[in-house]
């Protein structure tokens, strides 16, 4: 199995606060990996480090054996890592369709010259983008609302649109930050379906969530963070029996 992503001895400090302390993780191609832990345990911080929004104080991130630590987010995205956001960050005054098309930005070769002179490549690539965007919108069951403004979509739809937009970048690895947060049971089920479809596309998924049932259901392997420290990793079954994990969650009184 090909090892896609390695996180080696990553530590992140904000002033006096240590958000992550010497964390190691790895993700193989085609896996669905979950990162769980109580609030403030450093899950989103880890995503921010992987996607280049933060530069870790120590340690490094390797993608396909190449260090990407602290690289500009747009370059990391072009390498093949795309994410969604915990607090939805769609381009709200643009349609669902346009949001997905923007995801394809870096994959197209049209340049300013093509644009200003309206060279044939522009038209051709626009056509390709449109078709691909429609496919992706169908994949996440948003085809019917494709021309609605992102801000007018329901909460569950917005979360799915973020996934489609991330997929549009052509990413190998999708990082989903609490994709099921705030969803009702039916919406969560639909989300499960979509993530399965993504797995069928041979994509790799890393996800963060609070909903234990959801995480246990979908993830093949889990990492558990608590106060910035990795306290356990393994299959959902192993994790559910791990005493440290149980303590961490019971101590928090969280779900």
């Amino acid at each position: 199995m090909e090892r896609l992503l390695r996180i080696e001895n990553v530590t992140q400090k904000f002033g006096g606060l240590t958000a992550l302390n010497n964390v190691n993780m790895h993700v193989d191609k085609g896996e669905i990996v979950g990162i769980i832990g109580p609030n403030g345990s450093g899950k989103t911080t880890m995503f921010n480090i992987i996607t280049g929004i933060y530069r870790p104080t120590e340690g490094q991130v390797l993608y396909q054996d190449e260090p990407i630590t602290g690289m500009e987010p747009y370059l990391i995205s072009r390498k093949g890592l795309a994410r969604t956001f915990q607090n939805i960050r769609l381009f709200s005054r643009m349609t669902a369709f346009d949001n997905v098309v923007i995801g394809m930005h870096a994959r197209t070769k049209t340049n300013m010259c093509d644009i200003v002179l309206h060279l044939p490549r522009k038209r051709r690539e626009e056509k390709e983008c449109e078709e691909r965007a429609m496919e992706l919108l169908k994949l996440v069951d948003l085809y019917d609302v494709r021309y609605e403004l992102a801000s007018s979509l329901s909460y569950g739809h917005q979360r799915r649109l973020e996934i489609a937009r991330a997929l549009a970048t052509g990413a190998e690895i999708l990082l989903l930050d609490e994709p099921a947060a705030g969803m009702n049971e039916q919406e969560t089920d639909e989300l499960l379906q979509i993530i399965r479809r993504i797995k069928e596309l041979k994509k790799t998924v890393i996800l963060i969530d609070h909903d234990m049932k959801f995480v246990m259901n979908i993830c093949e392997r889990l990492y558990v963070l608590n106060y910035g420290v990795l306290i356990a990793d393994g299959t959902p079954e192993e994790i559910s029996k791990n005493q440290d994990v149980i303590d961490a969650y019971l101590g928090e009184d969280d779900e």
């Binding site: 929004i53 870096a106 644009i115 626009e126």
Partner: peptide, 25 residues
């Protein structure tokens, strides 16, 4: 410009700069 890929990118930056960066812009 605004009716092209560049225009989309520009408006994406206006809407959410961080998300635009994360999308490879």
């Amino acid at each position: 410009i605004i009716n092209s890929k560049a225009g989309n990118a520009i408006m994406a930056i206006r809407e959410d700069e961080l998300a635009a960066r994360a999308m490879g812009i």
